[in-house]
């Protein structure tokens, strides 16, 4: 039997991944601010194109990748990511450089992932959440990259996620950095961002 074909990704890797990277970099440098993620390709469900574009831009054979139960249960998704990134898929979240979460409501706690070490805080996991909306107004953010304060919110997310982000920030410079990708947009909350409930 002929194996199912793996759908294509970037048609011009150099230029397209550069554009996606600039969107990721701007999101990380300006926490809570959403940017456009122009992908232009389709991905096998439940993998969303926005989140896939982030991994295609950043992940390769040097970066172990952790997938949540929803994604790892889909052979089309694992084949797609293995083929296009070359990243090895790992089951231990502590050993992952990147983690991709499709079922955001049932995401494991942020502390399940690598937090880095005091000597090398960069050796931590970067989490990518596939989410529906980045237009919420539940949180106030402050810190590097933000002039004064900004209002931001994501859905869906697990209950108590704001407290998790607060604890993550309290441990900085240790901790994880979180990217949120909707179908066409991206935003980030790095460990340096302080989170408060919106007034």
């Amino acid at each position: 039997m002929k194996p199912p074909a793996i759908s294509p990704a970037f048609h011009d890797v150099s230029r397209q991944s550069q554009a996606v990277f600039r969107a990721i970099m701007q999101a990380m440098a300006q926490p809570g601010r959403t940017g456009l993620l122009d992908t232009g390709f389709e991905t096998p469900a439940p993998l969303a194109p926005g989140a896939a574009a982030i991994l295609l831009t950043l992940a390769d054979f040097e970066t172990p990748l952790w997938l949540d139960a929803t994604l790892s249960a889909s052979p089309a998704t694992t084949d797609y990511l293995r083929f296009h990134t070359g990243a090895s898929l790992v089951s231990d979240p502590q050993s992952a450089a990147f983690a991709l979460i499709a079922d955001a409501e049932r995401a494991p706690p942020l502390t399940a992932f690598s937090q880095g070490t005091p000597d090398y805080p960069d050796r931590s996991t970067t989490l990518v959440f596939q989410v529906g909306s980045l237009d919420g107004q539940d949180w106030r953010l402050a810190g590097p990259g933000i002039k004064g304060e900004t209002v931001f919110g994501v859905s869906p997310l697990p209950a108590g996620f704001m407290q998790q982000l607060q604890e993550n920030n309290a441990c900085a410079p240790l901790g994880v950095d979180v990217l949120f990708a909707s179908q066409t947009r991206i935003a980030a909350i790095p460990r340096s961002t302080r989170i408060m409930e919106a007034r």
């Binding site: 550069q18 950043l58 931590s124 900085a172 790095p190």
Partner: peptide
Amino acid sequence: YNFAYLDEQTKRMIRRAILKAIAVPGYQVP
């Protein structure tokens, strides 16, 4: 040459370091 001289894998490696550097301002990422 590839666009902007560097090969894509090198760019990915540097881009990952840039993101960590932004997330931990002032820390030197190897």
